[in-house]
Design a protein around this nucleic acid. Structure first.
Lengths: 161, 161
DNA sequence: GTAGAACTACTCGGATAGAGGGTGTCCGAGTCGGCGCGG
DNA sequence: CCGCGCCGACTCGGACACCCTCTATCCGAGTAGTTCTAC
């Protein structure tokens, strides 16, 4: 059970975008050069973020990506779901139906105790992710590393050429 | 990010094994026939459980698997880790090192705020899994479906021939 | 000088190959139970 | 009748193919800026 590496990229990229104060868009190539990531592949992840309504994309010259909403309204869960999909990690395949006393018309996703326990754990995970917004991350980083926003903006302008 | 299907099989199998009151071992073929699972592949999962010390295996005639400890001392996390491995889903690849102001000698797994947030969520998931023991599941099932243990034992003896 | 239109270069977007891990299967090593033989 | 040794079959254990998802890449569609021309 491993998470796509794109989640990490997407989270860091969203954080970087949150420091772009003026309304300009940042293109995928620039965002990728930030961490020496493969540009085309990061672009793919950004497309997923755009489909999820987390960023907006603009084509053509001076185009690129920018956050679609305020950082307060973007949770970590939003980003994870945008990249990984909405499906949960533990998928109950209802094997109880094949066991003794298995009923064809029972929804074992609801009645199976093991499925419930696994879902409860995963719900706890999701709740924790939903409780953290991009603004929280941003504030923590700015508190611990006050130079980060400025460095990020400088790098963006330097890479623009 | 999807969990191996073997986790579901392992959990149900451990639960079934918990209903074997006498000390006899159940072979993989019988355990697989219980839910019409591929026997050889379930055997592979049972090997993982054996390596993790959750079940003990016996070779030869009348051999098979039995629980290595009491159900109270087997948590859901134990089973999940035995099948999925100890590595966490979100693996911080420390991409901050490539960014502006990246230090070669800093452990970004510890300092990166995003990594911390993701780890916190995953810890919550693990904690929830560790809080549920196989005995808890067993008790809940026996309370809701009192016929389950008897059915399971009957099926085991029926499949033994 | 200004407005319009065409052109050009730039950026995203989806369609297209390659690699790694999960899925599934098979056969061999080791072991336990049973059977036969001898005392 | 009882004990011992051999034999045989049975079960786990690890080594071997297959497939799907993640990773990575490329080229085309669409767009905004620019430039040129005509009024």
């Amino acid at each position: 059970m491993k998470m796509s590496e794109g989640v990490e990229w997407a989270l860091h990229t969203c954080l970087n975008l949150s420091w772009v104060t003026d309304g300009r868009a940042i293109r995928a190539t620039t965002l990728a050069a930030f961490y020496e990531l493969p540009p085309a592949y990061l672009n793919k992840q950004l497309q997923a973020l755009a489909r999820a309504g987390i960023v907006t994309s603009t084509s053509g010259p001076r185009g690129g990506f920018r956050l679609a909403r305020r950082p307060e309204e973007i949770t970590l869960l939003d980003v994870v779901v945008a990249i990984e999909g909405t499906e949960e990690a533990f998928r109950c395949s209802e094997i109880l139906r094949q066991g003794p006393g298995g009923q064809p018309d029972v929804d074992y996703r609801q009645t199976c105790v093991i499925s419930q326990a696994m879902r409860r754990a995963e719900l706890s995970w999701r709740r924790e992710l939903a409780a953290q917004s991009l603004a929280d991350i941003k504030a923590t980083v700015e508190h611990r590393f006050p130079a980060a926003p400025g460095q990020t903006r400088n790098r963006f302008t330097a890479l623009r050429g």
